[in-house]
Amino acid sequence: IRCIGVSNRDFVEGMSGGTWVDVVLEHGGCVTVMAQDKPTVDIELVTTTVSNMAEVRSYCYEASISDMASDSRCPTQGEAYLDKQSDTQYVCKRTLVDRGWGNGCGLFGKGSLVTCAKFTCSKKMTGKSIQPENLEYRIMLSVHGSQHSGMIVNDTGYETDENRAKVEVTPNSPRAEATLGGFGSLGLDCEPRTGLDFSDLYYLTMNNKHWLVHKEWFHDIPLPWHAGADTGTPHWNNKEALVEFKDAHAKRQTVVVLGSQEGAVHTALAGALEAEMDGAKGKLFSGHLKCRLKMDKLRLKGVSYSLCTAAFTFTKVPAETLHGTVTVEVQYAGTDGPCKIPVQMAVDMQTLTPVGRLITANPVITESTENSKMMLELDPPFGDSYIVIGVGDKKITHHWHRSGSTIGKAFEATVRGAKRMAVLGDTAWDFGSVGGVFNSLGKGIHQIFGAAFKSLFGGMSWFSQILIGTLLVWLGLNTKNGSISLTCLALGGVMIFLSTAVSA
């Protein structure tokens, strides 16, 4: 259960009878995928790494000078000259100064003066180019299975845990398959586009800190620079940016070097996208990844198990997540596992009318040892309800109150669905055939309105939902006002479609 501690969480529900669903994975976010007769899966884009970055340009932001020398000439005696002028490691300046009897010249006039100092770069920052084909995306998957609280967001041991898996995709191999043991396998067909235009970005490294910066900004930095990788004795261009020549006297000129420019660069980098280094690879934390999940090989585990009949206890007080759902960790005293956990939410304890829904599909106890633990997640209705676990006299209950409203949740879900469709863009549509167009249209309606429909009408039977949709269509056909007619027709059509397409 990876997503319960992530604030940016998206719930995606598969269409009834569908074998695939489109998701948008982004750094700092987590996606929970639910479908009829399929286990619930949490998917998170953990890291995006980039390798084989080529150094484009380096800037010196802290330097020192040494070996200063000057040469001067009297008027009419030609130009002052130093051998160091031809050495690229030196920074030199030529000027004219007033000369006369007082400073060793027989004539009054302008004399030539040249001053040089050896330039040494102490600290530099480097910009590297990123090729999209060198990106690698690491995705962690977790099935809502027989897990306890100690396994949440624990990325170790996934090789031997059938509840978890790690997959890596690249532009050259965008397809992967996550093996989930008894739950089958989940196929991923990803489109490795981060949403960032790397043709316009460089990877900047300064003092063990890293950013993504725009090329134009990078090339306009007014500091000494050299092109390409460091060859040991780089040729620094624009050395004068960190060196200041003071007022010249008759035979000498003082040279000083400016202080470190790291603070000024940090100020200019305010708002830039931060990154990290992992050995020789860069780690990015921006952008998104679009994936199509193929769920035809994914299956529920323990459908044929019998119900657990022994007593359950709450190991922890049920807690609310950031998303309005409830996490419950229970301990089973029996030894008759594997068995299914009898769990439901009810409005009252007399009729036990089921409300809400299970995020953890078909929760089971897989071990036959005593005191096995299991964590599950529920989506309670707004208002008061009861969490009921167990059967008969051994069942345990917990009162729950959820604040908020169904309308607010439906609106929030619609906005999130619209954002998801905007990110998917043209990849969500198939114009290759008439059937493809209608299929894409259905998927689009489901992406945007599916979660809201589930919130508003999830407790009704599909037949009642179709009746309401048919009534809206009838009202649309018999209303003389054009805008009201079109609105009723659209709402009725969407409702009829979703009542037959969205899983219960």
Rank of each mutant, 00 (worst) to 15 (best):
D10C: 04
D220H: 08
T335D: 13
S483F: 13
L212G: 03
V423W: 05
G408A: 08
D278C: 01
S405F: 09
C339N: 08
A413E: 07
S7H: 00
G436R: 00
A428F: 14
R164P: 00
N362G: 06
A310T: 02
N478I: 10
Q261D: 11
G444S: 13
S485E: 08
L300Y: 04
S72K: 05
S142N: 14
F431M: 13
L186F: 11
R299L: 01
A410G: 01
Y386M: 13
K340D: 07
P381C: 05
H249T: 03
P174F: 10
K301M: 15
A451L: 00
K128G: 00
L188F: 13
E367P: 00
R94Y: 09
S306Q: 08
S149L: 11
A54I: 04
G102L: 01
V24K: 08
G469H: 10
G432M: 11
G458H: 10
N237K: 15
A227H: 03
R193A: 03
F198A: 02
V91D: 05
M421G: 02
N237H: 15
L186V: 04
K251T: 03
L242T: 02
G493P: 09
D83Q: 13
R2I: 07
V12L: 02
P222F: 10
H266T: 13
K297S: 02
K38R: 15
T397R: 06
L358H: 05
Q131P: 00
N134D: 12
I359W: 06
A250L: 02
M349K: 03
D348M: 06
A333Y: 11
C121E: 07
C121K: 05
F497H: 13
T321G: 07
F285T: 03
M151S: 14
G157V: 15
H144R: 11
K283Y: 02
S64W: 03
I130S: 08
G279M: 09
A165Y: 10
M15T: 14
T95P: 00
V41C: 02
T115R: 09
R164Y: 01
G271F: 11
A176K: 06
V391C: 14
M151Q: 03
P318S: 10
A422M: 15
E367N: 01
D336I: 11
K281W: 00
E274W: 06
V347A: 06
N207R: 01
L186M: 15
K118D: 02
L358Y: 10
T88N: 15
R99V: 06
L82Y: 03
T95D: 07
Q36N: 08
F312L: 10
D426F: 12
E136Y: 07
N134T: 05
V23N: 04
L467E: 06
T414V: 05
K215W: 11
A268L: 09
D67V: 10
S368Q: 01
T309K: 14
G271H: 12
F411R: 05
C116E: 05
E370H: 12
V326N: 03
T351K: 04
P381A: 03
I396P: 00
V364F: 15
T233A: 14
T115F: 06
H214V: 04
E329D: 15
S433Q: 04
G184E: 13
K166E: 14
M34Y: 10
F245N: 07
A35Y: 06
L298F: 14
R193L: 01
N362D: 11
K394G: 03
D189F: 06
K294R: 07
S112E: 14
G334H: 15
V502I: 11
T353L: 01
D426P: 12
K123W: 10
K301D: 05
V364L: 06
P342T: 04
L477K: 04
H226I: 15
C121V: 04
S464M: 10
S306Y: 14
V169H: 07
G263R: 10
G157E: 15
D98K: 09
E320K: 14
M374N: 13
V46Q: 05
A418E: 06
P234N: 09
V328A: 08
H144A: 04
T360R: 01
C116F: 09
M206Q: 05
G493V: 14
V328C: 03
S51D: 08
V91K: 10
R2P: 02
G436K: 05
G78T: 02
V473P: 01
D67M: 11
L223V: 13
V256D: 01
G111F: 06
S461K: 09
S368A: 15
I4D: 10
D430F: 07
V23K: 06
T47K: 07
I445N: 11
R2C: 08
T156S: 13
M206G: 01
D161M: 08
T427I: 08
I468M: 15
L186A: 01
F497C: 09
H210E: 06
M140K: 02
G493T: 01
V169S: 02
V423G: 00
N154R: 06
W474G: 05
A63R: 04
M375L: 15
K246D: 08
S433M: 07
S433H: 04
G444P: 05
Q447W: 08
T406M: 11
M53D: 05
S440R: 04
T115C: 08
K297Q: 09
L424V: 01
K93A: 12
V56N: 07
L284Q: 07
G109I: 06
E168R: 00
G14H: 05
G282T: 01
M421D: 10
K281L: 00
G271C: 09
I389H: 11
L456T: 06
D42H: 04
D10F: 02
G29D: 01
A165M: 05
R416N: 04
A165C: 13
D87F: 05
R99H: 09
H235I: 02
Y61R: 01
K128H: 05
T160K: 14
G78I: 04
A504D: 09
F463C: 12
H214M: 12
C74V: 07
T205K: 10
D426R: 00
S405Y: 09
L113H: 07
Y332P: 06
G259A: 15
